[in-house]
Design a protein around this nucleic acid. Structure first.
Length: 392
DNA sequence: AATGCCTACAACCGCCTTCCA
DNA sequence: ATGGAAGGCGGTTGTAGGCAT
């Protein structure tokens, strides 16, 4: 199937005269193609022309550059030159120790997702990161070192061969991704599958007006195996790393999240203050959690609501993910919610509870409702968790 | 000086996705 | 809905420069 698709696409590319293929016939001058478009290293003069074009017209429409300026470069070449060398926000020079560490950590999480990694490294390009990684890999191979440092443990991937890069996950005692973020391990590990790398998209990919109750499409595409995602029994032994977090702490965390979900918390939209962040590390294995499943909840809200406090955000959402929470094993009845306002005094409780429930009904009307679907484990779980609380 | 080897990194290529008319 | 253009991505190649012989 895949092969066939490739054949079709290649055939299509061959008749696409406008594609930026710089291939030249044997014997020809390899510095330009049949359209007299130059290839190879850029000169300072060419850089000036391109920079001037961007200054006047902004980025995009790269194919217009040639017509507009006479610069003998195809659009793709212009775009590449701008994004990798000319844009003003680029950092130059060797990677700092922090950057190196971050690349390694990100690679452990994402594999060869250079562009995704670049999003987490301001001023660095995917190309730089890729070159750094490949160089580093060669060096380590030469001296007989493994791909990752000892504190980032691989999860064996049965599909890997010598040529395929293995997929890895953080070890339980790792400090998380990067210095500016501390993505909790359970966030990632909950989405790790034995044979499939899984990438949690950074919050920058989540539109400002998206907030809860939909599993992001890109996440589904990346996992490719949502069924396996949900099969706890297939989590390999080496992923099981228990910590000493008492179960009641986890339950409390869930309750706190749910409380905010229902009654509003202090969280700002971009991941606000959190007492939860002071918790010791949670178990990295989903099997170790006292809940059956985990899930991502994303909700669409009107732009105007975006910064209102009652919109739930994960307490641990610190730039990577809206929220992940762990549904309870036993479905809870709606009346349980009156007990979730621990801070409210008894006198206010009922009125406040009723009022907020009405508010929440309004909020929930914005949610994308998920129908029960036994064939889709994510939808199925989503439905089973949400529905008892907020029947339509 | 000439040559060969190695390294870093810039740039290309093909494929895929997204956008838009 | 659809096809073409543009944008984006990741693998790979090309090349300049440094160093050793």
């Amino acid at each position: 199937m895949h092969h066939h698709a490739n054949v079709v696409l290649e055939g299509f590319a061959m008749i696409s005269l406008k594609s930026c293929t710089l291939s030249s016939f044997s014997g020809e001058d390899k510095s330009s193609d049949e359209n007299n478009l130059k290839k190879g290293p850029w000169t300072a003069a060419e850089d000036d022309i391109l920079a001037e074009y961007v200054r006047r017209h902004g980025t995009g429409n790269w194919n217009i550059v040639q017509k507009n300026t006479g610069l003998a470069r195809c659009g793709k070449s212009c775009r590449l030159r701008w994004t990798n060398h000319l844009r003003p926000d680029l950092r130059r020079g060797a990677f700092s120790n922090e950057e190196q560490r971050k690349v390694i950590e990100l690679h452990a999480l994402m594999g060869n997702k250079w562009a995704k990694m670049a999003q987490e490294l301001p001023g660095r390009t995917d190309n730089e990161i890729k070159n750094f990684w490949n160089t580093r890999l060669k060096k380590r191979k030469r001296v007989g070192l493994g791909i990752y440092p000892d504190d980032i443990k691989p999860v064996f991937n049965a599909h890997n061969s010598e040529t395929d890069q293995p997929t890895y996950t953080h070890s339980a005692n790792d400090s998380g991704v990067g210095s500016s973020s501390c993505v909790s391990r359970e966030v990632f590990n909950n989405f790790n599958t034995p044979n499939q790398p899984h990438f949690v998209p950074p919050i920058s990919e989540v539109p400002a007006d998206m907030q809860c109750l939909k599993v992001p499409q890109e996440m589904m595409q990346l996992s490719e195996v949502p069924e396996e995602m949900m099969q706890l029994s297939e989590v390999p032994e080496e992923m099981m790393r228990m910590s000493e977090v008492p179960e009641e702490m986890l339950l409390q965390e869930y309750d706190e999240f749910l409380e905010d979900f229902m009654y509003g918390g202090d969280y700002e939209c971009s991941g606000g203050p959190s007492s939860i962040s002071e918790l010791p590390p949670l178990p990295s294995s989903r099997d170790a959690l006292p809940f059956e499943e985990s899930m991502v909840v994303v909700r669409e809200v009107p732009q105007a609501e975006t910064n209102q406090h009652y919109i739930p955000r994960s307490p641990r959402s610190n730039g990577y993910l809206e929220s992940i929470f762990y549904p309870p094993k036993v479905s809870q009845e709606p009346e349980n919610y009156s007990n979730m306002q621990g801070e409210l005094n008894a006198g206010n409780r009922e009125n406040s509870s009723e009022q907020r429930k009405h508010e929440n009904e309004d909020i929930l009307s914005n949610f994308i409702w998920v129908e029960e679907d036994r064939s889709d484990p994510i939808k199925d779980t989503l439905y089973s968790v949400i529905h008892p609380f907020f029947p339509r």
